[in-house]
Amino acid sequence: MHELGIVFYIIRDVKKVAEENHVERVSKVVMDIGEVSTVVPHLLTDCWRWATDKEELLKGCELKCNIIPAVTWCDNCKQEYETVKHGKTCPHCHSENTWLLRGNEVEIKELVVSS
């Protein structure tokens, strides 16, 4: 259940940006969530609805999660592969000398606001 903690972080960041830009209302927050970031999008939106209900600035604000597919790079054979399907071991050469290229994101991409 770290989704609740993450929601509090998002709210803090969004409030800061809203203040800096003299925003009165935020109608949508778009997130980039990596496939292997360990954040569960539907839990995030559940927590979001509960937490934002208490915030005037964010009342009724939609949280949209874009899922970023996880891709791993193999340093041995210099190829990419799907992380979720093959994990740490490269399907091309069976090396474990691999690292995550993308798919670990928990990022605020953009806000839709009105002032």
């Binding site: 972080y9 960041d13 940006v17 928990v106 990022e107 953009e110 806000l111 839709v112 606001v113 002032s115």
Partner: peptide, 18 residues
């Protein structure tokens, strides 16, 4: 209600904690 616009952020949620 005033003008609607998009603010790009592209920032990790963990950045402030880090």
């Amino acid at each position: 209600m005033g003008e609607v616009k998009i603010i790009e952020i592209k920032k990790s949620v963990f950045a402030d904690n880090e």
